[in-house]
Write a protein that binds this DNA or RNA. Structure first.
Length: 271
DNA sequence: GGCCAGGCGCGGA
DNA sequence: TCCGCGCATGGC
């Protein structure tokens, strides 16, 4: 048991070794979170959760406990998965990233956020995303704004995206929003990796790397590993067998995520 | 001040 | 199919 649903608005984390809020939030899968006096506040789509860290206990107070039980992937035992990632040079990364979990994030938010992320830096595009939410989303009862839904997104013009710093990605975003309206998340969930990737690559502004992020963070395809400039540098140091674990293993996405957090956040040059 | 960022679209070979 | 180039813009 990793977490228990106490009621419709409350979750209790039972196994603290499998839930590290700091590492999860700083592992590049979510860009709308804030530190609070008690812990963290996280937004996903139109939903909000307060992670309250108190006396070696973690309580999640939120607008929808079912949503966040799924969001934090509490049915998956990452301890068992971690044991299958055999790569000696990755041990430090695995230990550091121990409490990272792969989220089940909001589809539209993931697609548009990662289009904006392309050839951009995290600090900059996080600011862009949050400004777009404040301008076009809806204020929720926790005080923070929802990610704009597709109808709200349709109101955003190319010049608006540019105004918020999206640069040359602005036209891609406008087109992607129209394409998203033609897609049904629940139908896409049924597709094989290959079919899903083909559809995602047809979205404007989505290439192989962004498609992999969408597959991992919105569709929970744990065997899909986004390869960015950080991961490219890291895998160059690994043996062929270790590269296979990262790029092709059943849990390639998880391995990659541990490495990304280790390199990007802990500022390590080497594994 | 130059390099880089969770890359992608496009045109030419 | 593959390769190289241009691209907005701020963080560092």
């Amino acid at each position: 048991m990793i977490a228990t649903m106490i009621n419709n608005h409350t979750l209790r984390v039972d196994d603290l070794t499998q839930f590290d809020p700091y590492a999860i939030l700083h592992s590049g899968q979510v860009f709308r979170y804030w530190q609070t006096k008690q812990g963290w506040l996280v937004m996903s789509g139109s939903h909000w959760a307060k992670i309250i860290i108190d006396n070696r206990q973690i309580i999640i107070s939120c607008d929808d406990a079912n949503y966040f039980y799924h969001y934090f992937d509490f049915d998956t035992d990452y301890k068992t998965i971690k044991a299958t990632l055999n790569a000696p040079k990755l041990q430090n990364a695995l230990i550091s990233g121990g409490g990272i979990r792969i989220l089940n994030a909001d589809f539209v938010e993931v697609v548009l956020s990662f289009i904006i992320s392309a050839n951009n830096n995290i600090k900059r595009f996080t600011k862009t995303i949050n400004e777009i939410c404040q301008r076009y989303g809806t204020q929720t009862d926790c005080g923070y704004w929802s990610f704009p839904n597709l109808e709200q997104c349709s109101q955003i013009k190319e010049t608006d995206f540019k105004r918020f710093g999206c640069g040359y990605r602005a036209p891609y975003l406008v087109k992607a929003i129209q394409q998203l309206k033609q897609l049904e998340f629940k139908q896409l969930q049924k597709l094989s990796n290959q079919e899903l990737q083909r559809i995602l690559l047809s979205i404007s502004g989505v290439g192989p790397k962004v498609a992999a992020c969408i597959m991992l963070f919105a569709f929970h395809r744990l065997d899909t590993a986004p390869v960015d400039t950080w991961i490219k540098k890291a895998i160059a140091q690994l043996s062929v067998a270790e590269q296979k674990v990262i790029l092709q293993g059943s849990y390639a996405g998880i391995a990659q995520q541990y490495i990304f957090y280790y390199l990007q956040h802990l500022h390590k040059e080497v594994l």
